[in-house]
Design a protein around this nucleic acid. Structure first.
Lengths: 275, 275
DNA sequence: ACCTGAACACCGTTCAAGT
DNA sequence: ACCTGAACACCGTTCAAGT
């Protein structure tokens, strides 16, 4: 009732950069890009703005730190999953069968084999999931990239993917190209997917994701037939696609390109595909 | 002299949505994301904010319109270059022997052949150049994608690439996957490159791009050897890479994956590579 | 129908002052 | 060294009023 929202929690731990970043992530998760405000932060942390500025230079730095933290967690979680080279790594990750339209016997690499390809897929899905959990992540990633292209986040992702590119046997001269291609595809596709999910949740909360894609598909079908013949033709495919399956197919496509172009001897072996 | 900046130009043409978007692009080009302000716009167009709001719902819509306009121009410019459809698709695609590691006799497809591959490269470089000319474009693209994933810009790019994927002979069932992979790579890689250029220009105006990459490369070499062995190893490659050559190599990599995976009969023919 | 411009609510950031 | 909180400059947006 009081117009003055009372401080939600007495400050138990001293203010610290870490605590501030943590609160920032919570605010972003709860209310999106617009939810992170120095005033909201101030209230949640039970301080004044000056206290925050003591630990953090400005809002951009805070956003970068939040982005860094979330990406680091995603990559660390993945690394743990494939950690012990020995570990049987548990049964088959029965998270959920997904069950999209029909096929997709397995959407993801069910058994975490230790091949470089599977590790790349694991890293990719780690980022994929992080973007679904934190819908603000793709945008912030793009913003940070434009602020400092080779800043703190890029090396993290680059390293995770690059190690596996090296393990694949790609000759050193092509490491940069191959890794860049993978990273660009992964960030782009995962981001697009996260945007879909977020829009489905936000714009039409009562409607599920399938219905959202259905609406988008219908919009595509109503495009000008002269200007957009291809997009119209592919509208149904867009509606019916399963995200994770599609994402995985794209990764395999890039992996196939890498092996075909840079591992002339082993075309057949590397990528799974239909087989 | 007067503290009040006099209206820079008497309004010659009536205010229109088109004129507003044009001014918005000019402001973005001149001063970046922060340069577009309703106050700046108001002054440049010699009006009040209310007039602008008569033609445009809000700032997001204006940014979307500016993004749309720039992308449309980029794609139209490319389309003009490769007009004819009659082409018998040429002999055996002697586009270029690739030969990555050192030479780069010519960075881009010099002669605009009519093969689908070359048209894809042309579209890609059209977007690449647009992002270099308009450093705010990658970020706005990402923002628009997160606002309305299948909005107005996506179909434009999707259509341009997708038509060529179809012309490539990719079976219909794979159109969506193949086109998505190409689009994600192109947007991601072009955006990263644009960020590099923009940072080189902005942060260190007196220093050229090569020196900027040199600095970034040095930063990579100083990363923790235990945590970042790959990134450190690839730092020199990052420093020495030629942007357009690299960009093209990535496109060819994805194209190779598409042909290898989806055109089983014609592995040799499509993408140039070493042959 | 189209435009004006004062006013409002909100935001990032600063800084003199406290402990 | 770390925190407080009032104050400042600026921004997107609204709206009663004009033509």
């Amino acid at each position: 009732m009081a117009t003055r929202t009372r401080r939600t929690q007495r400050r138990t731990e001293a203010l610290s950069r870490e605590r501030i970043v943590e609160a920032a992530v919570e605010l972003l998760d709860a209310a999106g890009e617009g939810g992170l405000t120095f005033r909201a932060l101030t209230e949640r942390l039970a301080t004044g703005p000056g206290a925050i500025y003591w630990h953090v230079a400005n809002k951009d730095e805070l956003l970068d730190a939040a982005t860094d933290a979330v990406v680091a967690t995603a990559l660390a979680a993945e690394r743990a999953g494939s950690a012990g080279s020995a570990g049987p790594a548990g049964p088959a990750e029965p998270t959920e069968p997904a069950e999209p339209t029909e096929p997709a016997e397995r959407t993801e690499p069910a058994e975490p084999s230790n091949s470089p390809q599977d590790k790349i897929r694991a890293v990719a899905f780690g980022l994929f999931d992080a973007m679904e959990d934190h819908p603000w992540l793709p945008t912030q990633l793009a913003l940070q990239l434009s602020r400092s292209p080779w800043g703190s986040v890029t090396p993290q992702i680059f390293e995770s993917i690059g190690r596996q590119v090296r393990a694949l046997g790609v000759p050193e001269g092509h490491w940069f190209t191959a890794t860049s291609a993978l990273v660009h595809y992964i960030l782009g596709a995962a981001g697009q997917n996260a945007a879909n999910s977020a829009t489905a949740r936000t714009l039409v909360p009562d409607v599920d994701r399938a219905e959202f894609l259905d609406a988008a598909s219908k919009a595509w079908k109503e495009l000008d037939p002269d200007d957009y013949p291809f997009t119209r033709a592919v509208a149904a495919q867009m509606r019916d696609h399963d995200d994770r399956e599609q994402f995985l197919a794209g990764i395999d496509l890039v992996l196939t390109g890498i092996t075909a172009l840079h591992l002339p001897g082993e075309r057949g072996r590397t990528t799974s595909s239909a087989t």
